[in-house]
C-alpha cells in the first residue's frame, strides 16, 4: 500500500513536470518574439489571436504538417534519434530540482521535487553535459558539412564552458556545505548567495548562456556562416524538438540561477507564496536572456574560446580561492 502510494506520487510528479516542460516552449516562443519586436520598435506577431497569442499554435501546426526530410547519405537511425537524445537529458535534470518547501497533502508530507538527491547539483552538471550528444549526432548523421561543422563547434564550446560552470558552482557548495539543492536554498534564507558570490554568479550566467547556445554564444547555429548549424538538415517536427530543447535548457539555467544565487523560493519585502516568488524570479532571468539576445552581437569563434579558457576559468578559480579565504 505504502509502496503503491509512493510510486503513484512519483508518477504524478513526473507527469506534471513533463507536461509543464513540454508546454513551456509555447508561451516562450511568443514572448521571445514580442520582446524582440518591441526592442526593435516593431509590434511582433499581431495577426493570429489577440496580440498574436495564438501564433505558437499556428507555428506548431505548420511544423507538424511539414514534410520530414532525411538527406541522402544520412545515417538514418542516428538522424532520427538525435533530437530525442538531445531532449532526454534536459528532462532528466528536472528530476532533482526542488520547486518549494515540503507541503502536506492529506496527512502525507510531499517534497516538491521528484527526488531530492543529496548530490543534486553534481547530478545536474553531469546530466547537462549529455545534451551535447544529441547535437554531435545530429551534426554527424546529417552528412552535411554545415551540420558537421556546427556539431563540432558545439562540442568544443560545451566542453569549454562546462568547466567554468562547474567551478563557479563550487563557491556556492562551499557556502552551503551541501550539494543538495533544497539545502542550498535553505542556506539562503537570510542572505542570498549573490551577495557573497558576485563573481561566481557572473561566471555561471555567462557559462550558462553558452551552455544553452544563445546569443552571444550561438556559434553552433551561426546563420551567417553555417546555414543553421547542426540542425541545418532537419525539418518539421524533428527540428522543433531541437528548438524545444533550447528553450528547456534556457529555463533550466534560469532555474539554477535562482536556486543557487537568488534564494530560490525565499521572497523579500512582499509576503507572496514561495512558489510565486520562485516563478517570478525564474521569469525575470528568462527575460534577461531574451534581452541579451537582442542586445549583444555574436562573438567570433576564437573570441569564444578565449573568453572560456582565459577569462572565465581563471575568474572561477579565483572565486573559489576568495571564498575559501573568507570562510
Amino acid at each position: 500500500m505504502e509502496l503503491t502510494l509512493a510510486i503513484l506520487v512519483i508518477c504524478i510528479k513526473l507527469a506534471l513536470i513533463a507536461g509543464v516542460l513540454l508546454l513551456l516552449p509555447v508561451p516562450l516562443t511568443w514572448l521571445e518574439r514580442k520582446v524582440a519586436g518591441h526592442m526593435q520598435q516593431r509590434l511582433g506577431p499581431m495577426r493570429v489571436g489577440w496580440h498574436g497569442l495564438l501564433q505558437p499554435i499556428a507555428d506548431g501546426i505548420k511544423l507538424l504538417t511539414k514534410e520530414d526530410t532525411i538527406p541522402a547519405g544520412a545515417d538514418r537511425l542516428l538522424f532520427k534519434i538525435a533530437p530525442i537524445v538531445a531532449l532526454v537529458p534536459s528532462f532528466v535534470v528536472f528530476i532533482t530540482i526542488p520547486f518549494g518547501e515540503n507541503v502536506t497533502v492529506l496527512g502525507h508530507e510531499i517534497t516538491l521535487a521528484v527526488s531530492n538527491l543529496n548530490i543534486g547539483l553534481l547530478f545536474i552538471l553531469a546530466v547537462i553535459g549529455l545534451e551535447v550528444f544529441g547535437v554531435i549526432l545530429a551534426g554527424w548523421a546529417s552528412n552535411s558539412k554545415y551540420a558537421l561543422l556546427g556539431g563540432l563547434r558545439t562540442c568544443a564550446q560545451m566542453i569549454s564552458y562546462e568547466i567554468p560552470m562547474g567551478f563557479a558552482v563550487i563557491g556556492v557548495i562551499m557556502l552551503a556545505q551541501s550539494m543538495n539543492l533544497a539545502e542550498i536554498v535553505e542556506a539562503q534564507s537570510e542572505v542570498w548567495f549573490i551577495v557573497y558570490q558576485p563573481i561566481g554568479f557572473l561566471v555561471f550566467l555567462i557559462a550558462g548562456l553558452a551552455e544553452c547556445q544563445r546569443v552571444p554564444f550561438d556559434l553552433a547555429e551561426a546563420e551567417g556562416d553555417l546555414g543553421a548549424g547542426y540542425h541545418t538538415e532537419y525539418s518539421g517536427m524533428r527540428f522543433s524538438l531541437f528548438m524545444m530543447n533550447e528553450y528547456i535548457i534556457m529555463v533550466l539555467i534560469s532555474v539554477l540561477c535562482v536556486l543557487l544565487f537568488f534564494g530560490g523560493w525565499h521572497g523579500i519585502l512582499l509576503p507572496l507564496p514561495p512558489l510565486v516568488w520562485f516563478l517570478l524570479k525564474v521569469a525575470l532571468v528568462i527575460y534577461l536572456f531574451m534581452w541579451f539576445r537582442f542586445t549583444f552581437p555574436r562573438y567570433r569563434y576564437d573570441q569564444l574560446m578565449t573568453i572560456g579558457w582565459k577569462v572565465l576559468l581563471p575568474l572561477s578559480l579565483a572565486n573559489i580561492l576568495i571564498t575559501g579565504l573568507l570562510l
Binding site: 548530490i119 553534481l122 546530466v127 549529455l130 563540432l152 560545451m158
Partner: peptide, 21 residues
C-alpha cells in the same frame, strides 16, 4: 549516487565526447 554522478560526468560526459570528436 556520488560514484554514479562522477561516472556520468567523467566517462559519459567527457571521455565519450572526446572519442566521438
Amino acid at each position: 549516487p556520488f560514484l554514479a554522478a562522477v561516472q556520468v560526468f567523467v566517462y559519459v560526459g567527457a571521455v565519450m565526447v572526446l572519442f566521438l570528436f
